[in-house]
Design a protein around this nucleic acid. Structure first.
Lengths: 82, 82
DNA sequence: CGTACATGTAAAGCTAGCTTGACTTCGCGT
DNA sequence: ACGCGAAGTCAAGCTAGCTTTACATGTACG
């Protein structure tokens, strides 16, 4: 099992939002600091609920904070635009 | 503990997409049928990775498939009429 | 120098998410 | 009536996500 196919822009967003600390973000979304550290480090992906809370915290969409690198390459063809 | 703060439109999307069966969706996103049943029933929320796969499978955004009912209340003013 | 804050690492424990497998019920075609 | 595919339920087991606690490092400030 690789780390995770999910990447995130949390660290980037924290700095873009007034240099917010990990502790502040953790408290803001209701988890512990270790959870934020682990997620930022890509050790594991957050739950859907936490992903939503983080996205809302930064006033963005889940898709703007997390990126999913598709390993299976399902039945979807590419789309133009966006 | 309530069931989950997360609601989804999977059942709706399945029917909108050629009356696809739970088994077909399950296979398509790489999980078992029981997992789809449980998620549709709101017994628990999927992982972020699975949420992404489901959203892609239906060619939508995560936010279009799942809805998060915030239990803690957003720390910022969040209101976008919808 | 000391101490306060931000970040990171490690380890042990609990629970939610997912799996396998077996069995039930409903609707439809033969 | 019988079989079949779709949906659902129950139960036991494994693992990923999260918690708590504790300790290490770097940087800034009195």
């Amino acid at each position: 099992m690789a780390k995770t196919e999910i990447k995130n822009k949390i660290r980037r967003l924290r700095f873009d939002n007034d240099e917010m600390t990990q502790q502040a973000l953790a408290t803001g979304v209701g988890v512990t600091r270790q959870t934020i550290i682990a997620i930022e480090a890509g050790k594991y992906a957050p739950s859907l609920a936490l992903a939503f809370r983080i996205a809302r915290f930064f006033r963005t969409q889940v898709e703007d904070v997390f990126e999913y690198g598709d390993p299976t390459g399902p039945s979807q063809d590419d789309q133009a635009g966006q």
